[in-house]
Nucleic acid binder design. Structure first.
Lengths: 201, 201
DNA sequence: AATAAATTTGACTCAAGGGTCAAATTTATG
DNA sequence: CATAAATTTGACCCTTGAGTCAAATTTATT
């Protein structure tokens, strides 16, 4: 029926959607087997395409990896903004944000990849910069909490690395549809995170 | 001088020492650039050798990666044994162990590598099994703590993954000789770990 | 149906890097 | 010193996998 929508927008949208599908599929493969162990042919086959077709949507394998990273960081940036609530203290905000992170990472499609080393030049710089931004935002929340007394005083950087580590590791062991649901993970992570840094006074 | 010690032991010891040096150097490179981005030629050059010489000490690149993993797990097993103290509750034991882990990982030479996916067959199975053993040991401590009341009740597995994540991430961001010392890291990690899981009742 | 644009592909090129080997070099031993 | 064993190497082979391209196929447009 309305299969033939012809707005000039349609073509681009179609292309963008397929491009995204390529990136998602590749990302899943990267997560499962690692960047270098997942070949373009495999990824293509998984989508019912030939390798050459992938290059119609994408410039290089490295670009795919780059996009995978950026997609997660975009999502995280979004969560940082959306969990910004006026009348909450540092700890409360961090709880919302951390829970949102955990929740997002347990949904299919988005995963924190480890292979930053496989990116070169600008790609790597940009990704590291983006990751740095996220860490900064989290660090600011922690510092805020230390000031308002909701978080105990300690080295904020180390605290944040500790917390981000748990998130990064999440994508290594967690598999969707397993014994534990994403919601449960998120709750457990928030609990453990906040107990670890809350001010016990 | 006593440069010419000739016990039949000497030759083997020499060989073993060099072999270990190869594995250490490779491990450092793997950590810095990732398994696939560190070439055998590079590793060899770093040791003032040719690539071919490496193969006198080692069967394959994969074997090196395997040994790197095993070395860490051996060390961890050692720490598990040495921190086993009779009259301590679960939380106290876990504090000792976790601190020992963090301390070890901030010393040069040993690092938790991420590239398990690059191992095939028995290599991978063994490494995963070893990692599993470590996680089990930690999980047992957590469960013990839940029974003796020192650790709050929750899903032990998730708790442990959270904690192990922080350790795994450690090797990504920590660089020896930086702003913070290994001891400080260890202390901070123990504090945050135990606050996160301690029983607040 | 004819034409043009968008997709897709098979077949190919090419570089990188792991691994091998016979020969050279160093080190120890009678 | 001569001989043997232990190390090391340069040159080479070979597989894997990323990326390319002209041609084929599918999808829209007139």
């Amino acid at each position: 029926m309305s299969r033939t929508v012809k707005s000039p927008f349609d073509r681009e949208a179609q292309y963008a959607a397929k491009r995204l599908a390529v990136i998602r599929a590749a990302g899943a493969a990267f997560r499962r087997k690692g960047y270098h162990n997942a070949s373009m042919v495999e990824i293509a086959k998984g989508l019912g395409l030939s390798k050459a077709a992938l290059y119609y949507y994408v410039k290089s394998k490295e670009e795919i990896l780059y996009e995978c990273h950026i997609n997660v960081y975009d999502a995280m940036d979004g969560l940082i903004k959306s969990t910004r609530v006026k009348d909450e203290n540092g700890l409360e905000r961090l709880q919302s944000l951390y829970g949102a992170f955990a929740h997002m990472l347990t949904r299919d499609g988005l995963a924190l990849l480890a292979d930053v080393d496989s990116l070169k030049g600008d790609y790597q710089e940009t990704v590291l910069a983006r990751r740095g931004k996220i860490e900064q935002a989290v660090t600011r929340l922690v510092e805020r909490g230390m000031k308002d007394g909701s978080i105990r005083k300690a080295d904020p950087k180390v605290m944040v690395f500790f917390l981000m580590g748990a998130l990064n590791w999440l994508n290594v062991w967690y598999e969707a549809g397993g014994r534990i649901s994403g919601d449960e993970i998120a709750d457990a992570f928030v609990a453990q995170m906040s107990a670890g840094i809350a001010n016990g006074v």
